[in-house]
Amino acid sequence: MAIVVKRKPLTFLEKLYIPEIVRGLTVTFRRMFFGETVTLEYPEQRPPIPAGYRGVPTLVRDPEGREKCVSCQLCEFVCPPKAIRITPGEIPEDSDYAHVEKAPKEFDIDMLRCIYCGMCQEVCPEEAIWLQNQYSMSGYTRAEMVNNKAKLYELGGTLPDDHFKWNKKKEAAKNGGGHGHAMPPADMPRSENPEVPPVFPK
């Protein structure tokens, strides 16, 4: 139901209008000379970014320096504006992580298309793509606005990881456990682990 706020009848002084103008003027006068500046001077001063902010999508590495993305291309599929383009590649046999099998050869995110919806982060099974606290993207050309793999890792940096899931998988495989089902505590359902809020060195 609509709320009806009754308008108070104006007093005589208010009807004269001049005293009210003077009152308004004193308010603005106080603002002018004793008011605080509430704006930030942007490039030098930056606003504090709250936790969980969805900025530019980035790729991250784990503390061991491994790129987490396994180029499953789920993000590429889910991306509503089709901003992500992944060219999958192989991990060489002699690498420590050869059992991960795949890593992106190229990973482009077109920031002119990205709508910062965060679905890529949500869908990523490896927690490899994160929308972090970076919010200012600019460039002179369209080509500049496409973030390639190197740029994405540079923006993303390293995130803490308390699973090291692929290490455990390797361990399990060595002990004959197949896909990690042999060691329940190591492969706990994810929901029981507390979400690790991203902490960034920047």
């Binding site: 603005t28 603002r31 008011g35 605080e36 500046t37 509430v38 704006t39 001077e41």
Partner: peptide
Amino acid sequence: SSWIQGRV
């Protein structure tokens, strides 16, 4: 205008 509005 900016002083009145708390700007610089």
